[in-house]
């Protein structure tokens, strides 16, 4: 299986693994975050499972973990993780992706690098265009 990671300095790393990486906590799409708030505080690696790529609950879970629970550790997407979704996952706060069997890691890297500009502030710290516009004008 293939793990794609975004490093602290924004590089994309690909590693072939023989077993899934161990997570301190694995959350399903219906996870109750208040119930696990305590273990979150000490967790270094949290996995969020996508039972199907079309099930988008994991995106909101990630957003809450990052923006409301202050989780700073590694956030790993597992399950039906396809290369066409990883850039969206990165924007809501995931920084590691265990790709579904057969997905090409180079496509995941491409997906992550594709959009230079975005319209929303989210959990990835990328500046939305309305902030850049303001800066352009000031410059």
């Amino acid at each position: 299986m293939t793990l794609v990671e975004i490093t602290q300095d924004g590089k994309v790393l690909t590693t072939e693994l023989s077993a899934a990486p161990e997570a301190d906590l694995e959350l399903g799409p219906d996870a109750d975050l208040d119930a696990v708030a305590e273990s979150l505080a000490s967790a270094k690696q949290v996995a969020v499972r996508f039972p199907a790529f079309s099930d988008g609950r994991g995106y909101s879970i990630a957003r809450r973990l990052r923006n409301q629970y202050g989780y700073r550790g590694r956030l790993l997407a597992v399950g039906d993780v396809l290369v066409d979704q990883v850039h969206l996952m990165a924007r809501v706060g995931f920084d590691a992706f265990l790709l579904k069997e057969g997905q090409k890691p180079e496509k995941a890297a491409q997906s992550l690098a594709r959009y230079q500009s975005v319209y929303q502030a989210s959990a990835d710290g990328q500046r939305p265009v309305w902030e850049l516009r303001r800066r352009n004008k000031a410059a």
Partner: peptide, 14 residues
């Protein structure tokens, strides 16, 4: 329109 375009959290809604 801009805010909803590729909104990362809301692209796989029910």
């Amino acid at each position: 329109r801009q805010w909803s375009t590729f909104h990362p959290e809301f692209t796989y809604l029910p």
